[in-house]
């Protein structure tokens, strides 16, 4: 039970309190570019959630088994090659590895979805190539790395926590971009001072939304208390 509460808190934290867009400012390019119509925004959100989950699974596996200091696979290879039993630390390669993990998982997802789910591909396939340079994905990988490398074994994140973080982040991104698209559809009809048209007003609206999302602060500790009270 404690375990599920912890997972829930990570997910809620990533989706609402520390929303990727409004708190960490990652994923702003698609947030500005693809938020003109609700259906497109929703497709983009789905695509990001999908890719972010796959990329963070991959990056957790790579970080845990290959990159972190003393990782099992790299240590085994090193000792098999006769390098002795010293601790192998490949964290310097992590950024390179992540960016290629992201690029290849985007390619893979695109091929898979195109072959097996043509309707799904029609709805968000066009966004997939754009996602490679979406900072939200790399950001999720880096957050996971922060909780695996240089952390005591007991506090180290498992694949479950990594996955919940990325799913929460993806859902948070979808919420943000869909709300924004809904507001922008209405903005089309309103009279905006000329210099503010386009991205300018989008930033102002995003600022107000970010202010609103600050209201979620503290929801996680309140939830934790609620569950603890329910348990006892």
């Amino acid at each position: 039970m404690e375990y599920f509460v912890n997972l829930l808190l990570i997910g809620v934290g990533a989706a609402l309190i520390h929303n990727f867009v409004f708190y960490y400012f990652v994923g702003l390019c698609p947030f500005l570019g693809v938020s003109k119509r609700i259906d497109m925004a929703f497709g983009m959100g789905l695509a990001v959630t999908f890719v972010i989950s796959i990329a963070s699974t991959l990056s957790w596996l790579l970080t845990y088994y290959v990159l972190r200091p003393g990782a099992p696979v790299s240590s085994w290879i090193w000792s098999t090659l006769g390098g002795g039993s010293g601790e192998v630390n490949l964290t310097i390669l992590s950024y390179l590895v992540y960016i290629f993990a992201i690029a290849s998982s985007v390619q893979f997802v695109e091929m898979y979805v195109r072959k097996f789910f043509p309707p799904l591909y029609k709805s968000f396939g066009i966004f997939l190539p754009l996602i490679t340079t979406n900072c939200a994905i790399l950001f999720a990988c880096l957050e996971i790395m922060k909780n695996v490398v240089g952390v005591e074994p007991a506090a180290m994140w498992g694949l479950d926590q990594a996955l919940v973080l990325s799913l929460g982040g993806g859902v948070g991104f979808t919420i943000a971009i869909v709300i924004m698209a809904g507001i922008r559809e209405e903005l089309e009809l309103s009279e905006i001072p000329e210099p503010m048209r386009g991205p300018g007003i989008v930033f102002i609206v995003a600022g107000i939304l970010a202010l609103a999302f600050m209201g979620f602060a503290g929801v996680d500790s309140a939830l934790a208390r609620l569950f603890k009270a329910g348990m006892s």
Partner: peptide, 9 residues
């Protein structure tokens, strides 16, 4: 889609 890309780049 074309004008969306235009906003971005």
């Amino acid at each position: 889609m074309a004008d969306d890309r235009a906003v971005e780049e």
